[in-house]
């Protein structure tokens, strides 16, 4: 029982991280139908920026978080302009391979500059633990930080998407880019903003994970990136609430599998769940099914 509560707490944190990264995947897919494999690496770079800011500039958690989000959002826009714009009209496979090339470039480019070894992230969050309901299960204050930051960011995102001009443009482009263009929406700018927002969220996730687990390395983005992507697909890729749902769903599934002793298989379970969901709902839990007109 205690173990279960403990795992649920962990599940919330893990789910938050997946959800934050998944949001970027889903937004980019929604707008240009690209599986942005480099997204997990932006998360990694966000963690490194947070590391540099806290270690060398001795910034606190929040300034580091915000600055890191700012810098990763710029990185996201640059990547879009340099790498994805030239292939925007290109084919699915070409686009996918391009995204993978960007991903490899970021991973191994970082490895070249910061060296492959794992770095220790400074303790920037208070290290305090609260016992839950007088059981031996503990709630780390860090868990609360993660959840609060995640929820705050999601509320801001919600506001941006539904209340601002940029958000409306993003929704319009993802619904029908040709029509949006006819309505006078600047497609290039909208895509740019989408990358900026998605990357900022990944950057935030990077700083959160860095300060939670205290260790980062250049390949840290690969597995969470893949998982977050799985989460986005489970929720229904292109659908924003789907990314959040998928993220938490996957977070809980994984921690539950670990709780019942299957931690070695938790990644396998994640992918098995993905395949199952796709077979039952081919467009994900919240995705809409669109039939091809003949």
């Amino acid at each position: 029982m205690e173990q279960l509560i403990q795992q649920l707490v962990n599940g919330v944190s893990l789910g938050s991280i997946y959800a934050l990264i998944a949001l970027g995947y889903t937004m980019v897919y929604g707008i240009i139908n690209l599986i942005n494999f480099a997204h997990g690496d932006i998360y990694m770079i966000g963690a490194y920026i947070g590391f540099a800011l806290t270690t060398f500039l001795h910034l606190g958690f929040f300034p580091a978080l915000i600055l890191s989000m700012l810098l990763t959002s710029m990185l996201g826009m640059v990547i879009e302009k340099v790498a994805y714009k030239p292939i925007r009209k290109s084919t699915r496979i070409a686009a996918l391979i391009t995204a993978i090339s960007v991903s490899l470039f970021l991973e191994y480019g970082m490895m070249y500059f910061v060296k492959p070894e794992t770095r220790t992230f400074p303790e920037v969050l208070p290290n305090k633990q609260i016992s839950i309901f007088n059981t031996s299960a503990v709630l780390d204050i860090k868990n609360i930080y993660i959840l609060v930051v995640t929820i705050t960011l999601m509320l801001i995102l919600q506001y941006v998407i539904y209340k601002t001009k940029v958000g409306k443009a993003m929704r319009a482009v993802s619904l029908d880019s040709d029509a949006a263009q006819l309505m006078g929406i600047d497609i290039n700018k909208t895509i740019s903003y989408t990358f900026a927002i998605g990357s900022a969220l990944a950057g935030a996730a990077g700083v959160l994970v860095g300060s939670y687990y205290n260790s980062i390395n250049p390949l840290m983005g690969v597995v969470p990136g893949l998982k977050a992507f799985v989460a986005a697909v489970i929720g229904g890729i292109g659908v924003i609430p789907g990314a959040v749902l998928g993220g938490f769903f996957l977070g809980f599934t994984e921690t539950l599998v670990s709780a019942f002793g299957g931690s070695l298989y938790k990644d396998a379970v994640a992918f098995a769940v993905l395949i199952l969901v796709l077979l039952i709902k081919p467009k994900g839990l919240l995705g809409r099914n669109i039939r091809e007109k003949v």
Binding site: L96, L226, V233, D267
Partner: peptide, 23 residues
């Protein structure tokens, strides 16, 4: 089961299968 899926979705499912085999 998976070949009912199309395009990117099939790609993801086969990717998932590959990872499962590896694990």
């Amino acid at each position: 089961p998976t070949l009912r899926l199309k395009g990117d979705y099939l790609a993801i499912a086969t990717l998932g299968f590959g990872e499962i085999v590896k694990i």
